[in-house]
Nucleic acid binder design. Structure first.
Lengths: 179, 179
DNA sequence: ACCTGAACACCGTTCAAGT
DNA sequence: ACCTGAACACCGTTCAAGT
């Protein structure tokens, strides 16, 4: 049977399933979104998902990548702004990732792909901060611990409920303290 | 039947079950420890646990409280030490809580008791730091954001693998930055 | 190649029944 | 009062069977 003539191609359907997963994971959380519920929302049988994705963690990693990439592509426009503006903007962008932060930490020890993604996320964020501080004349050795602190605080902001003013105050304090 | 003559009293058995839970939760993690496995280790039927604890989250909260309380009682001896020593010591104590940090964040939205415990933990930690900074002559308004940053970094240290030197460098940088 | 119904081994929890 | 065997409604995942 000529499956290439199917009204929906494989990558198209895969993308559609990913969209549904992204929506439900970010809205209800990973744990609260069962594969069955996800399948139902996508109008397929639960096991159909396993034709497109290895397992639920693979789905998680793809959702994380898609969201992060979307955020980072916008982030590049802010590279010339002061560190305070950058951090505030990152915190706001990653706000939508909030429901998945604790999930990543919980799943990382149980899933190699999630663990790799998590390590890469930290390395990437720290590298960004180190680069920004280096540009402002701080040596790499002195910048690295500060970059890790900034990443931890960013992660803290991501994983805890926090008003906009609190967030801005925190970031201002952090930036003042670090330079 | 005179149950009070039972060889093991209710609170004794409850404490024993809690010990088993503490051991398994801290060793294997909350998610990896099923109620059945826990029951097996304690040599009772799985549903017996529900006679002593409302549900699995209640067991988690009790384990958290026991571990935290043990840590904090030791902490009081360090109250006169410099902030750097204090923080380092806290980070080392809470190292054993590492496997449960992400669990607390993951369960908090789904369990009111866990959510309350988490809120109390943050409030308590921040109050400690604010008090320490106040003692060192920093106003409360200026201390609060710094205390929150310190708490976030502490939580970051708790939830991520980190060598002892890295941890000490981080804490030194943080303390230098905040005062 | 793509999709499904049925089944598997688990999970936390409940309930009726025992002592 | 304390404990259990059996059952419930779920979960993520697999497999044989369909087209």
């Amino acid at each position: 049977m000529a499956r290439t003539r199917s009204p929906v191609t494989y990558p198209e359907k895969r993308a559609r399933l990913l969209e549904v997963a992204q929506r439900l994971f970010l809205k209800d959380g990973y744990e609260a979104t069962s594969m069955s519920k996800l399948a139902e929302q996508a109008s397929v049988a639960p096991n159909t998902l396993y034709w497109y994705f290895a397992d639920k963690d693979a789905l998680l990693v793809e959702v994380l990548n898609a969201t992060l990439q979307r955020g980072m592509s916008e982030y590049l426009a802010y590279v010339e702004e002061p560190l305070e503006v950058q951090l505030g903007w990152l915190a706001r962008v990653f706000e939508e990732l909030r429901p998945l932060v604790s999930t990543v930490h919980a799943r990382a020890p149980l899933s190699a792909p999630v663990s790799v993604w998590h390590a890469n996320f930290h390395a990437f964020m720290e590298a960004q901060f180190v680069e920004q501080m280096r540009k402002r004349g701080i040596s790499v050795e002195r910048a690295r611990p500060s970059a890790r602190i900034a990443t931890f605080v960013l992660e803290g902001l991501m994983s805890h409920e926090c008003s906009a003013e609190e967030r801005d105050t925190l970031i201002r304090t952090l930036v003042n303290a670090l330079d």
